[in-house]
């Protein structure tokens, strides 16, 4: 574990907590894409399949349970909780996210490190996570203004993988044989997709306005 990866995990945890805070306390999911949340639930479900078979550390298992539990509960809240569901912007959240799942699965079947069931699904989760934010970014452009909590959620979610990139650079230089092109390229694509969001998000800080 290095400072970049810890910062990345904490940023990811913070993003999930900010979203849970928004949904649980003010019972609102305005501006949040249910489709992105559904994709993230699939990402964690396919990435953490080894949670029961391989133990890395208490921290690792604990965080996996947190991400699994939070992503599925957010989807449940947005789908079935009456008050929260009412604030869900169904008409605007129309990105065909299932069209993202199949290409990622095909790509994982073609490009992976080992051709095993767990490894292919784990690789699939990497590819899917890279594009999972697209429905949210499309919704963002349609709903113009968003509230601060949603903006902070997206900022933290985009930042965590950026910190992971620093972690991979650090590990590449400090650990022999630490080379994982698939993880690195997927992580880079994922972070680059946030580029224009980061641009407007920082403008907001400079301009002191809401995220336009």
């Amino acid at each position: 574990m290095n400072i970049f990866r810890l910062a990345g995990d904490m940023t990811h945890l913070a993003s999930v907590l900010v979203l849970l805070l928004k949904i649980h306390t003010i019972k609102s999911c305005a501006g949040v894409s249910l489709r992105t949340q559904e994709l993230y639930a699939i990402v964690f479900a396919t990435r953490y399949l080894d949670i029961f078979t391989s133990f890395v550390s208490v921290y690792n298992t604990f965080m996996k349970l947190v991400f699994l539990g939070s992503s599925f509960s957010i989807v449940w809240y947005m789908r079935y909780h009456k008050a929260v569901h009412r604030t869900y912007d169904r008409e605007q959240d129309t990105f065909r996210h299932w069209f993202l799942v199949l290409p990622c699965l095909v790509l994982a079947l073609l490009i992976h490190e080992k051709f095993t069931f767990l490894e292919v699904l784990w690789t699939f989760s990497l590819y899917l996570e890279a594009v999972a934010i697209l429905p949210q970014l499309v919704l963002l452009q349609r709903t113009r203004n968003i509230d601060n909590l949603t903006g902070q959620y997206i900022f933290l979610l985009g930042g965590y993988r950026g910190l992971y990139i620093l972690n991979w650079i650090y590990r590449y230089f400090t650990e022999p044989h630490f080379v994982h092109w698939i993880t690195w390229i997927a992580g880079l694509v994922q972070t680059l997709l946030y580029a224009d969001f980061f641009y407007y998000y920082f403008l907001r800080f400079i301009g002191g306005r809401g995220v336009e």
């Binding site: 990866r5 995990d9 990811h12 080894d50 391989s54 890395v56 550390s57 690792n60 965080m63 996996k64 991400f67 490190e113 080992k114 490894e119 784990w122 992971y164 972690n167 650990e175 044989h177 630490f178 994982h180 993880t183």
Partner: peptide, 10 residues
């Protein structure tokens, strides 16, 4: 194995 190294990340 070297691959297990990756799996120590979230």
């Amino acid at each position: 194995s070297e691959n297990d190294v990756t799996k120590d990340e979230l």
